[in-house]
């Protein structure tokens, strides 16, 4: 490993990106609930307040709508705010400012302003926090033109995509799966970016394309390793960006493998899998398909408290194995 590449957790990688950006540009600052001395509900901001002071690591009252709106106004007038939602579920309290203001301001004003705000959303289930602290709402925001919505799956991408988001002139929403915060991976020191709008082929294969998002990328890779022993060669595409979606990478992969399975944690219906499936069905890859397109998503229920129920509510590795075998079984 290169000397400048360390093993960092996903949370450390995000913190490092924010610190680098704040060191490089004094317009960058953080806003959020309990992100100062508390260090953030998931310790992502950690001790940044000690390094940068309370004016740049600003604790807000519990006021998601007002706080998000202040971030939007600050972004319109020369600052580069990074607004942390304590849980992605609390986006519901701020949808007005995100959807009506941040997303549309540039358009409504005919290009006279831009809104370079970054909003961070700790998302997903698996922490026993039940229905109001475990949702995956990225498709909600992905439905809104004017926003960019990203879901980095690795520490490397978390840092590089956050730095890309901070440099982006438009509002970027980052969904960070809470179970990834402690995951470690190689992260280079210093500044680098990972482009928004580009999917990544995490594993090459010939028999089946799995398009996965966020934590499901890791479950898909685990499933792919097991399926290799059964003679099923799986390609795993990490979507990374919900909007704008990298159609070309997905289409190229499906043309190669002729089979598609979408795996995502959010509620299955009307979700990212529907968009990926329809996009492939509308594309030239449709003629290459040898099996129906499959989707694995969250159950049509809120996230439950009971840990076994909770696990059963979102796709797990055995579900991916079964779906993959099913799609590939009739191959010629």
């Amino acid at each position: 490993m290169d000397a400048s590449v360390r093993e960092l957790s996903y949370a450390q990688a995000i913190q490092e990106a924010m610190a680098l950006a704040m060191e490089a540009d004094e317009r960058v600052f953080l806003m959020g609930e309990d992100i100062g001395v508390y260090g953030g509900a998931f310790q992502v901001t950690g001790d940044l307040v000690e390094r940068f002071g309370p004016d740049r690591v600003m604790d807000t009252p519990i006021s998601e709508l007002g706080g998000a709106g202040i971030a939007v106004g600050a972004a319109m007038t020369g600052l580069l705010p990074i607004f942390e939602f304590q849980f992605s579920d609390f986006a519901t309290l701020a949808m007005e400012q995100i959807v009506n203001q941040a997303a549309k301001m540039r358009y409504m004003l005919g290009g006279e302003v831009s809104v370079p705000v970054v909003m961070r959303f700790p998302a997903g289930s698996g922490t026993g926090a039940a229905a109001q602290h475990s949702q995956s709402l990225e498709a909600w925001l992905g439905h809104v033109p004017g926003l960019k919505v990203i879901q980095p799956a690795t520490p490397y991408d978390a840092k590089g995509m956050l730095l890309a988001a901070i440099a982006d002139p438009d509002p970027v929403m980052i969904f960070e799966h809470k179970l990834l915060y402690k995951m470690k991976g190689p992260v280079p020191e210093g500044h680098y970016t990972v482009p928004i709008g580009k999917a990544e082929v995490r594993r090459e294969g010939r028999d089946l394309t799995i398009v996965a998002t966020s934590i499901m990328v890791h479950k898909a890779l685990e499933a792919a390793a097991a399926l290799q022993g059964e003679g099923i060669d799986v390609e795993v595409v990490d979507l990374r960006t919900v909007r704008p979606m990298d159609k070309a990478t997905i289409i190229a992969s499906v043309k190669k493998t002729s089979r598609l399975l979408c795996v995502y944690e959010a509620v299955k219906t009307l979700g990212i899998g529907a968009e990926v499936s329809a996009m492939v069905a509308e594309s030239e890859a449709f003629d290459y398909l040898d099996a129906p397109i499959g989707r694995l998503g969250g159950a049509e229920t809120p996230i439950p408290y009971n840990p076994e129920l909770e696990k059963a509510t979102v796709p797990q590795v055995p579900d991916i194995l079964a779906a993959a075998r099913d799609l590939v079984k009739g191959r010629s």
Binding site: G69, I70, G73
Partner: peptide, 18 residues
């Protein structure tokens, strides 16, 4: 809708000392 945005613009004015 414009009220928090105005406060954000005022935060810019204060931080940027305009």
């Amino acid at each position: 809708g414009g009220i928090p945005i105005a406060v954000g613009a005022a935060l810019s004015a204060k931080k940027l000392r305009t």
